[in-house]
Nucleic acid binder design. Structure first.
Lengths: 131, 131
DNA sequence: CTTGATGCAAAGGGTTTGCAGCATT
DNA sequence: AATGCTGCAAACCCTTTGCATCAAG
């Protein structure tokens, strides 16, 4: 609604990758207060305009919510250099049904992040082996 | 190896659920220092004796690594009351292959947590609707 | 005027680290 | 004696919060 919030959304739209709150703050033209960005992210999250992801490094990241069709948006993070790749792939909904039937939980939604080794770091590893 | 580390493993074995470092510390008979538990968890993690999971609440949790066969161990967390249920279910490895081929990343491993509403909270919701 | 967003500063909470002391080999 | 684990305290970082101010309806 407010100017600041639109600015945050614009940044996220432009970057098209998960951003730390600190990164968002630095990318804002009219850099307001960091606390304001934190509050803004809460609002945008509850409005389902952005989604939060967690790369297991203790820092929350945000990106614009995808207009998910059949394919869903995931991330693969390099264990070595931290590079993040986006992936569009179908999530196996059969799994959700299995979980629902095993647990009687409802409204189940998965939070998934993939970790691996990126091509560049893979090569480096090979070089190290050879050396 | 050391006494403290075995004690931590024993606690995790006994409880059979993801524990906060603070919880582990409180469950230890000879409660040493919190910092020691933090260091211990790092060691155990690197030794692949425990695995860390993340329930998106800013606190790391640990449990004994499963001797994974065909079925894998996952968690379903109640969005309302925070109750955690364990689930044993097959993970769709086809998904991993899809991601590997899309990204050229190797050694891909998924980190998954499921969120939903537990049966008890589901009932409460219905009561509220009726009331 | 009333409501809500902002900036600023301080506090909170989980985690890490430096250092000295202690145990074990 | 040497290595490494422990306890203690302080520091670090991300995040949240109280409060006064400011902008908008």
């Amino acid at each position: 609604m407010t100017h600041q919030r639109l600015a945050v959304l614009t940044v996220l739209q432009r970057e098209q990758r998960p951003l730390t709150i600190r990164e968002i703050h630095e990318l804002l033209d009219t850099a307001g207060d960091l606390a304001t960005v934190y509050r803004t992210m809460h609002v945008l999250q509850e409005a389902h305009l952005v989604s939060r992801c967690d790369f297991r490094d203790g820092v929350a990241r945000f990106e614009v919510s995808c207009a998910c069709g059949a394919l869903h948006h995931y991330h693969v993070i390099c264990n070595n250099c931290g590079e993040v790749r986006g992936v569009e792939i179908e999530f196996p909904y059969a799994m959700l049904e299995g979980i629902a039937s095993q647990t009687s939980y409802s409204h189940i939604s998965p939070h998934v992040e993939f970790f691996g080794v990126c091509p560049a770091c893979s090569k480096e590893g090979q070089n190290k082996k050879k050396a």
